[in-house]
Design a protein around this nucleic acid. Structure first.
Lengths: 188, 188
DNA sequence: GTCTATACATTGATAGAC
DNA sequence: GTCTATCAATGTATAGAC
């Protein structure tokens, strides 16, 4: 099957990859130009400013991740759901030393306009709320160790995942992600 | 008392602040030039390349933070030590939307030479090992909820602190740091 | 040590031909 | 839509006078 990929889509995909690798200030239209094979002026045709491009990158990335979360089988046990989540978070790491796009942009947030901040905030909230449900389920099942209220614990857990991909890439090991998973899983 | 501050120290201090605010690719010698009041060529006199400057920034920052950790009263209870740590982590936030310098550089790590990677790794390890001791103490005292081995839990906890300062700045609230503290503190 | 002057590449962005 | 051509601004860095 032949999948048609428009130039616009290629630009956006490579932009997402580059942001996850080097951050907002670490890639340029020229980088995209050589990756996609069109001139920088053509990129400006699709995305007039860099902020336009990044905002769309956040939207696209968020859509993909949230779709993946929604696709997790609701009938699974809480600790199984958490494993899926950890795998999702670590996937990009192995392929190319990338971290979560929204975690990266959170680091770059002081260089970015408010529109992007809001989009990144929305991504954080969606993940935290998904994790809160999983933690609540895990507490009820007795499969996950939840200290305090699920909402608070979910925010702490999401932060731990964000921090752990940073460390995983820094140390070239996925073990850091497993540490986070282990910190809430009840040993059997 | 008159504290003499050399130009070199001023450059380094402002560099640390700027890295914590905008990251490696988000500040320039020109920024430092206008902050310190010397020309960029003078900055090159002290720090020939930007990487030299950043490496020294990591050393200086690490020294300060580790000194602060060492200064925490050893006779305190584990949860009191954890409070001190959280406060330490959140301090820079309030003053100017800064996050941990080494957390920021971990995000920028793909743009940096290996010397800096090693320095950032050392900072991570030192913090994780300090936290591991606190968690072990807390488990014994019954003041902290530690799931699994202290070493693993400490890495997860440090990641949570790193992630939570990102979120705290993103949402303009220190509550995210308190969530992390609450996730390990046993309610009384 | 600090400056002036400058080199030289890269950056995001625009105008206009095709 | 994609290109060529060009822009002004910014980036790190160096040479050499004082």
């Amino acid at each position: 099957m032949e999948t048609t990929t428009t130039v616009r889509e290629q630009i956006l995909d490579h932009a997402i990859t580059l942001i996850m690798l080097r951050g907002y200030n670490g890639f340029s239209y020229r980088d995209l130009s050589s990756l996609v094979g069109v001139k920088t002026s053509s990129i400006h045709y699709y995305f007039p400013s860099k902020d336009d491009l990044v905002l769309e990158a956040v939207s696209e990335y968020s859509k993909e991740v949230l779709n993946a979360l929604h696709a997790v089988d609701a009938s699974l046990s809480a600790d199984a759901k958490l494993s899926k989540y950890a795998k999702l978070f670590g996937r990009t790491l192995g392929d190319g030393n990338q971290i979560c796009l929204c975690g990266m942009l959170a680091a770059d947030i002081e260089s970015l306009p408010d529109t992007i901040r809001q989009a990144v905030q929305a991504f954080f909230k969606a993940n935290e709320s998904w994790l809160a449900k999983v933690l609540a389920q895990g507490a009820q099942e007795g499969t996950l160790a939840v200290n305090g209220k699920p909402d608070n614990a979910a925010r702490a857990l999401f932060a731990a995942f964000q921090g752990s991909v940073l460390a995983a890439r820094l140390f070239h090991t996925k073990a850091r992600l497993e540490d986070v998973e282990a910190s809430v899983r009840i040993a059997r």
